[in-house]
Amino acid sequence: MSNANGRKTATVVIASVIVVGAFTYLMLGNIEGDVVYFYTPTELLSKGDAAYDRAVRLGGQVSPGSVQWNAEALDLKFKVREGTKEVLVHSKGAPPQMFRDGMGVVVEGRYRRDGVFESKNLMIKHSEEYRAPKAGERPQEMYRSLMKGGTAS
């Protein structure tokens, strides 16, 4: 093998080691750190003062009966619940198609000092349940009726 070839090989090998090392570090960082993708309402509320005004994600279920949707202002309020704790969330714009009472959600935003979580991004966390609709059951109708105006039933 020529010298030039050897140098090329060495460069590629070093580059690959760096790439692989960086990825490995990222993965291990993920494992060892206490970084969680989202906080539950309980965890957020237990942070006390540290909970406020930081970019965080909050996850839980849409508390049944808590959804208030203003179709003209595209303004959405609902509570995210986990266990017995709830956090009021305010969001602008229409939520994703599967948004409804009891659905899992993750919101990105900030918890304001007035106790309202200001959401910049509302995401649906779908469960691993895949079910055929039962006779007469139409969850997608719920979204439609919700979007037409007023509060969900």
């Binding site: 994703p96 649906i124 966390k125």
Partner: peptide, 29 residues
């Protein structure tokens, strides 16, 4: 259409992206 977003860096998507890029690196190598 389900989550409401194309992509987010959560553990499943991130680890899958890492897997994908490592094997792209393998093929490039």
């Amino acid at each position: 259409p389900t989550w409401g977003i194309w992509w987010t860096w959560e553990p499943r998507t991130t680890s899958t992206a890492v897997l994908f890029f490592m094997f792209l690196a393998y093929l490039i190598l």
